[in-house]
Design a protein around this nucleic acid. Structure first.
Length: 245
DNA sequence: TGCCATGTTAAACT
DNA sequence: GAGTTTAACATGGC
């Protein structure tokens, strides 16, 4: 569920609550629930995989982590840990098993919006600068670094690396200029494909490498291995994805 | 049925 | 203190 594009979809679904008053806030999230009723839900801001529900002088930051989910208007599966339920006059917003924090609105000023691959404010040159100062980093770690490519998750990582023909364990500093540019371009470009395909319920169908066994390009077996600092699954073709080191 | 994964943080270590 | 490793969280698909 929760890579950057999925959060964008959630944001769109909550549009009808904009400008509405929060009538009640309940759930097992460890926040001061009584701070929320009476406030107006002004804006839904996303930063990568983070959601910021903006109210007056206050934001609710939500991260779905690995297992988080949500529902609108109807509590579809009430057996799950209901973390936060926001009641509006025209419906209900439910969040399950996610991270919830109540923060001062000023936290929005600290965020580097240029790092969000799905944002209009995305700045590829800035990403390039961040990569240049970390030449020893593996490209699989670089793509998952939320300070550089906010919103990119493991699926996007695998698909981007397959598209640009780069081995996940390549060193950032050893990438030829064209490959470095392709990496930065596809991180955003594939994220928009992900968004479109997810909306059309055909995301999985369009995976070329992630969870796949056969390379769609050359027909050879794909390699599955846990790579990088956090040992996330990588699916790649030894033949079509070059190792730069 | 058991494993493990679209993720991150904080505590526990060296 | 720093950098690194481990644990915790918690659900659903295969």
């Amino acid at each position: 569920m929760p890579e950057g594009p999925s959060i964008k979809i959630l944001k769109d679904l909550t549009e009808k609550f904009l400008g509405k008053e929060i009538l009640s806030a309940t759930g097992n999230a460890k926040i001061e629930m009584d701070q929320l009723p009476g406030r107006i839900f002004q804006e839904y801001k996303t930063y990568g995989k983070q959601s910021y529900l903006v109210c007056e002088n206050m934001v609710v930051r939500i991260h779905l982590l690995l297992f988080g989910s949500y529902s609108l208007d109807e509590q579809t599966k009430p057996d799950r840990q209901l973390r936060l339920h926001l009641k509006f006059e025209n419906g209900d917003l439910y969040f399950y098993s996610c991270s919830v924090k109540l923060l001062d609105r000023n936290v929005l000023k600290e965020i580097d919006w240029n790092a969000d691959v799905l944002s209009d404010e995305w700045k590829p040159l800035k990403a390039k600068k961040k990569l240049k100062v970390q030449p020893e980093m593996l490209v699989c770690d670089a793509l998952l670094d939320q300070n550089i490519f906010s919103g990119v998750g493991n699926i996007i990582k695998n698909e981007v690396l397959f598209r640009i023909g780069v081995h996940p364990e390549s060193l950032v500093g050893k990438l030829p200029p064209k490959k470095l540019a392709a990496l930065i371009f596809e991180a955003r470009n594939y994220s928009f494909d992900f968004l479109r395909w997810k909306k059309e319920y055909v995301l999985k169908k369009n995976w070329l490498a992630h969870t796949k066994k056969i390379c769609p390009k050359c027909g050879e077996n794909l390699t599955k291995r846990h790579t990088g600092l956090n040992s996330r699954r990588s699916f790649f073709c030894e033949k079509d994805q070059k190792l730069y080191q």
